[in-house]
Design a protein around this nucleic acid. Structure first.
Length: 425
RNA sequence: GGAGAGAUGGCCGAGUGGUCGAAGGCGCGCCCCUGCUAAGGGCGUAAGGGCCAAAAGCCCUUCGAGGGUUCGAAUCCCUCUCUCUCCGCCA
């Protein structure tokens, strides 16, 4: 959510910023709506103040034993008028809120211009793609040869876009998650979190998935609806919702390993082969809650923490600054990490690190008390994958495959694999 | 699942229809007194929103949430949520 004050006082600049995303802000519509809201609120407040004063007068008159029948009559008509004014205000308010909730975040000045992913800017590369003396297979074939990757069983159980892991691959998957958690908790200073996988609409509204992106979510109907989390960002960031934190509590750094559930509506036919795009996948997520002044330093830090995972696994990757048109709804600036996949011969996204500034904090009412002003102000929130577990496994299978069908276990993972150095068919 | 109790400001806790955003206490802040890590005194101390360019000021909302009764609701009625205790069941 944008700062409504800024939206009102600096409308042109906001419109110019949003235009970088290709988002057209309806200035006329906004001004008309805002004017209606203002009038409705002034009128309702006025009537309510009058009614309150009148009611108080009734009490005083009765206390003195005076006749209050005139005041009572006036009160009745005021209450009636107020009901109408309040209903009017509520309608406008809902309309204004929905409109505000549908606006994406403002972009940081450093975000490169561009309409789509082709304009993303590569910032750096780490590691050299390995030269194979045989034709590298993709992870589906590597996994099949190991006998641990079973899409057919998954299809029988659940359908398309699910996977079953068996034996050493299931263990590799677990080892990856453990390794990442240990790295972030013991070396990067994160607190490990276990949080709900089913969340309320309010939590999803806080982080920005609702109301606009309901079609991307799995909804669990019941007396009260729940949604399956599309990322741990949702429950973990919402840890600070409706809180006023002290300056001493910041920064907060959380890490959580959770499954993520995505409907992938609109991705029909995309990445249908393999486990790149699944309805259910595991991810280790990093979340920072920081003072506004620190958030861009925190973004660099968080990205470095995600990169460290790939460095330790000795996987080649590159870092992109997403361009204006490719940045997510709630983010002001995003870096993507892309890992090299020999099976596809290209870099594929494995982590996305975003600074949401105050966008989510305003929706969640997550604040800190700024000692300089003494006032509660929105915190800044950041999140990033540190990193996607399923895709990390893909990268390992493809980058560490051998001609005989075996897969070398990266050194960093061996302690989590009982010392095993190779996965063999 | 059954029975009961509860939800008030940073915390504790009073308040069963009127001048209550809410006594009192604790905590915190500023000041006074006191020559010294004590005691005492005074003042202040919620959040969200609106009017205003902004500040000051004024106004509105909020006593778990929503609805109702009423001129007027923390207080009465209904529904829901959450917490606690006991029983049952269960990983």
């Amino acid at each position: 959510m944008l700062d409504s004050k800024q939206l009102r006082t600096d409308t042109e600049a906001v419109a110019r910023n949003l235009a970088r995303r290709g988002f057209v802000l309806d200035l006329e519509g906004f001004r008309a709506l805002e004017e209606r809201r203002k009038q409705a609120q002034i009128e309702a407040d006025r009537l309510r103040a009058e009614r309150n004063a009148n009611a108080k007068a009734v009490g005083m008159a009765k206390g003195k034993g005076e006749d209050a029948s005139e005041l009572l009559k006036r009160g009745e008509s005021l209450t009636h008028a107020l009901a109408i004014a309040e209903a009017d205000l509520e309608r406008v308010q809902i309309e204004a809120d929905q409109w505000l909730m549908g606006l994406p975040n403002l972009l940081h000045d450093s975000v490169p211009e561009g309409r789509d992913e082709s304009a993303n800017v590569e910032l750096r590369r780490q590691g050299e793609p390995r030269q194979f003396d045989f034709e590298p297979a993709d992870h589906v074939d590597v996994g099949a040869r190991l006998g641990g990757l079973d899409f057919e069983a998954a299809a029988r159980i659940s359908g398309a876009r699910f996977m079953v892991l068996r034996g050493s691959l299931a263990r590799l998957h677990r080892a990856l998650a453990q390794f990442m958690l240990d790295l972030h908790t013991s070396e990067h200073g994160y607190q490990e979190i276990y949080a709900p996988y089913l969340v309320s609409a309010a939590a999803l509204t806080g982080t920005g998935q609702l109301p606009k992106f309901e079609q991307d979510l799995f909804k669990v109907d019941g007396e009260r609806p729940f949604y399956l989390i599309p990322t741990a960002e949702v429950p973990v960031t919402n840890l600070v919702r409706e809180q006023i934190l002290t300056a001493e509590q910041l920064p907060l750094r959380f890490v959580a390993h959770t499954p993520c559930f995505r409907s992938e509506a609109g991705a029909a036919g995309k990445d249908t082969r393999g486990l790149i795009r699944q309805h259910q996948f595991d991810k280790v997520e990093l979340v920072h809650v920081v003072k506004p002044a620190d958030s861009y330093a925190a973004l660099e830090q968080l990205t470095a923490h995600a990169e460290e995972v790939l460095k330790r696994l000795e996987l080649p990757y590159r870092v992109l600054a997403l361009c204006a048109g490719d940045i997510g709804f709630g983010s002001a600036k995003t870096y993507d990490l892309e890992v090299w996949l020999p099976g596809q011969g290209k870099y594929r996204e494995i982590s996305s690190c975003s600074n949401c500034e105050a966008f989510q904090a305003r929706r969640m009412q997550a604040r800190w008390r700024n000692p300089e002003t003494g006032k509660p102000e929105p915190v800044h929130t950041l999140n990033g994958s540190g990193i996607a577990v399923g895709r990390a496994m893909v990268a390992i299978l493809e980058n560490y495959q051998n001609a005989d069908g075996s897969v070398t276990v990266p050194a960093a993972l061996r302690p989590y694999m009982g010392g095993q150095e190779r996965l063999v068919p």
